[in-house]
Design a protein around this nucleic acid. Sequence first.
DNA 1: TTATGCCATATTGTCGACAAAACGGGGTTC
DNA 2: GAACCCCGTTTTGTCGACAATATGGCATAA
Lengths: 226, 226
Amino acid sequence: MLINAPQQSTLADIAAHRLAQSIVTGELAQGQKLNETELAERFGMGRGPLREALRQLEGMRLVKRIPNAGARVVVLDRKTLSDLYAVREALEGMACRIAATQMTDDEIAQLSALLDRHEEQIKKQGGKVYAQSEGDLDFHYQIARGSRNQMLMDLLGSEQYQLLRMCRHRTSRNAQRTGPALQQHRQIVAALAQRDGELAEILMRRHIQGAWHSINEMIEKEEAAA
Amino acid sequence: MLINAPQQSTLADIAAHRLAQSIVTGELAQGQKLNETELAERFGMGRGPLREALRQLEGMRLVKRIPNAGARVVVLDRKTLSDLYAVREALEGMACRIAATQMTDDEIAQLSALLDRHEEQIKKQGGKVYAQSEGDLDFHYQIARGSRNQMLMDLLGSEQYQLLRMCRHRTSRNAQRTGPALQQHRQIVAALAQRDGELAEILMRRHIQGAWHSINEMIEKEEAAA
DNA sequence: TTATGCCATATTGTCGACAAAACGGGGTTC
DNA sequence: GAACCCCGTTTTGTCGACAATATGGCATAA
């Protein structure tokens, strides 16, 4: 289950992918009970593969399972998100520092080109924040790849990535942080191009901290409204 | 699947626990094929629960599954371990820094007491490195708990912890690093007691780097011998 | 001798049915 | 009126059997 897992092999893998998609897009609400029989029927498969898929999603931290009581979609409360962003700051900062010495010139150039396309997209359709989010995640994932650390790529790519997408989807309606984010991305790429790992790490950590502050304010507003 | 999961609920959970135990102790060799039918029979259960257990272990990175071709115990080669220790350095360093501000005086005192017991154990039975390993892991886990970051605790406690135990078990025969390790642990606790997060982080990172160097040398010897 | 295709076997993937446990409603008792 | 218990229903946990796929050996041909 990397960025996209379109190729189909076993029913359990297909179910896991479809469920993950439904969860991150909010089609399945946070905390919602996941009925095995119903889901199996909806996906046109038996309960066996579906149960395996649930075990898989549990490992991805997208669902929480309680023995003899079923599985529920995870709920991203403020504390959970705070923890997530703190861990991301450490991991992505590390990825950035290493990537500065490990990425090839070509890869850095591609990263820069990605930001160009990204900027283009923002100009064309100002409001489409969602596209920005996906592009942003691509950006972060490419840097993780640049670290050449498989474990880091797995952690950031599969588990945290999904939770992050989930969080993004929830907050994408109101967020308008594309401008400063792009600017920060450009700074990071510049630091990478200069092979300045220390600076790249600092910039990435700031970038993530900024994102967290933005999210946190939004949550506060939500809570105040409710 | 935290430090210990003795309580039994579903057969799948029991199987996952027993399999994890067998894998980290080396009873199941690295890279070994895991036959569903055979394991199910050995555990006295059907293949359904066992397959769920395998999915769970896959999420824990203890086994690698290939569709239609079965599951194998993960192999910890030098690159994988290098990646693991690099990630641990970042995560545990972070845990240490936060724990310095979050742990209560009482918790720090308990940590110190743990080291006392640990020292006692070393004096009594010098050769017993294994006990040290488990105690050492307890030490690291307690600090992770001190960070009050659930995600960090999960990452360090469930996944990385198992891989680490596995690595320890493999290298425990020759390693004799208990002395310096205990000394470093004491320094870390001292930094925590002084509420000096920066120092605590630096010490923890050094401690883990030292452990990695030790492991790496051992692997080199192994490779040279083979 | 080496490579290749085929077939028997073993192993994984999937389904349906049964057992066990949790859930919910209605009635009873204090 | 609230707490408790009992029982029918729903949902999860488990098993056995069947289908699909991979594995390994053997014969055949270059």
